[in-house]
Design a protein around this nucleic acid. Structure first.
Lengths: 308, 308
DNA sequence: GCGTCCTACTAGATCGATTAAGTACCCCAT
DNA sequence: ATGGGGTACTTAATCGATCTAGTAGGACGC
């Protein structure tokens, strides 16, 4: 046992009277080796007794990468989607002997490179897109699940009789922005309603109100707002109320990616709840090269409250 | 250059016509070695030309730990505090050639052990406490900054004439809960106001209202609520309004750790803004064994809006 | 001319695992 | 009795950097 207090392969080898190689074969169940039952038993027992745990760094050096997956999460993407996605990713990776670590902040290439150089993870993902290493995972499923959710938001408004719908957006883009907008627009087209107008709801509160006011002045026929996320939805509701517009009677508002705060406002926010756990699991498997069959994304659902 | 496409020390050594050891000495500026200016120059140039970057895993194996610090963030701790803390930690670590990676979820020992075994980070911290490895950092400063913030909340209410103050808490504890409560109580004592009562504001909305109602029925003299965080504060305000109580006239509410949502409600939430960036930097230095002089925690400030 | 010291390096062990290549032994067929 | 083949292992190379222990060569003193 090294002075680091760690039990190494050599310790197990010594304790069970075989070579390091044999121990490695046994512990990794190497199918190309034939190990007698007796030896296998002795090795396993010794490993158990000594409390041997493989040294991830040594293994990573040999194998070419560590059993780590890094996920980049941009600031401002904390929501139910993000949370459930992270949970699914984390759990699925754990089930395959890997760990998930998250990097927060705007994902820039140098930072990613630094991570790559420092721990050589199996993959670096970005919330909303697959980012580096490994062959491109088939994120058709991903897109499909995601597209469905985007459609849900527009569809709900249409079902409630709204035909003039605008999208309220944050003042900077997220990885998903483009796709979201595309899917929403496509949904409008399919439903036979006019193309969705777009506008940005900035902070702080006053600026938001001004933006909403300006937008409605130019587009008086709009009766419903589909917000990029609950944050924007809440800002929109506040702006509308500050402007003396009634929600949902004058203008309806629907959020996206349920936040708890949405249930606390007056009127309470109608929004889309997304459980991305399966998406996280799918991403995990894609990264590890395991097939993803049997994992169907959970469809989103509309949480009907008062704002639509 | 190995087939992995990586430029290694050996490549640099070959290119500059010296041994690997010499390259290592030059690149690490080993003070125990004497290297001629000419050689140093050649090595540096070769490293530059080839784009050599040390392999973090190999280095970690040799050095005993990787240049990574892991931070555990419990679910539900996403706020301004968390964000600024993470930013400070991340930046300070980056300045000392380390990287920060975050683990989300409830911090359990097995998960931490897994991280330790997989990448052997320099340290595993937990948002709100120092967790493992290295000598215990002097978090007196930390506590001091944190204590000051807790005090600020109570003090603000007292300054507005409130003497019967209760603390509204979430339904489960965070790493900081105990300390927070202690500091708040101590502040009340110092200000000469009665001990703070405590109660939990659960979800969903109706349960929250019921809890607030029950509490006020038992403690009719309470005129102000100091919430554990903005989330609880917002739930409290909603509960109070649902019960027909006016905020702040009947009951004042102050939040903690400013959320953006607080500015969007009616009445807008008065809260405590905490910039924990310096705390993050201090934690980083403590972990790396660098002295933390010159880093003074930024005092928190009350964001006065309408709820107090 | 020999020992000593200094400069400027190099050789090789080391961290802890994985794995290709090899070896010893026994069994069985020819 | 000899070769082929399977079983059950071992030896040693390898991943890439760090660092101890050594060495070659020159200067200097006496």
């Amino acid at each position: 046992m090294g002075r680091s207090g760690r039990v190494t392969l050599s310790d197990v080898a010594k304790a069970s009277g075989v070579s390091r190689a044999t121990v490695s074969f046994v512990l990794n169940d190497d199918p190309r080796q034939t190990i007698s039952a007796a030896t296998r038993e002795r090795v396993l027992e010794a490993a158990q007794d000594l409390g041997y745990v493989p040294h991830g760094i040594a293994r990573a050096l040999r194998e070419g990468s560590s059993r780590v997956v890094v996920l980049n999460v941009d600031w401002g993407m904390e929501g139910n989607f993000s949370r459930s996605y992270v949970r699914g990713l984390d759990e699925e990776l754990a089930e395959h002997d890997h760990i998930l670590l998250v990097r927060h902040g705007h994902a820039n290439p140098e930072a990613t490179q630094k991570v790559l150089d420092t721990i050589v993870p199996r993959a670096v993902l970005r919330l909303g897109e697959v980012y580096l290493r490994g062959e491109e995972p088939t994120d058709e499923d991903w897109e499909r699940g995601f597209a469905a959710n985007a459609a849900l938001q527009i569809r709900h408004l249409a079902e409630r009789g709204h035909t003039r719908i605008a999208m309220a957006l944050p003042d900077h883009d997220f990885p998903l922005t483009g796709a979201r907008l595309g899917f929403a627009q496509e949904t409008a087209r399919q439903l036979g309603i006019p193309p969705l107008e777009r506008f940005v709801v900035p902070r702080p509160r006053e600026a938001g109100a001004a933006a909403v006011e300006a937008f409605l002045a130019a587009h008086g026929d709009v009766t419903a707002l589909a917000a990029f996320d609950d944050d924007i939805a809440l800002r929109s509701i506040t702006a509308l109320r500050d402007l003396g517009r009634r929600v949902p009677d004058d203008v309806a508002v629907i959020g996206f990616d349920e936040t708890e705060y949405g249930s606390l406002t007056t009127p309470a926010l109608t929004t889309v709840h997304i459980d991305a756990e399966i998406l996280g699991r799918i991403a995990a498997r894609a990264v590890l090269g395991i097939d993803t069959e049997g994992l169907a994304p959970v469809p989103g659902r509309v949480v009907v409250r008062e704002s639509v």
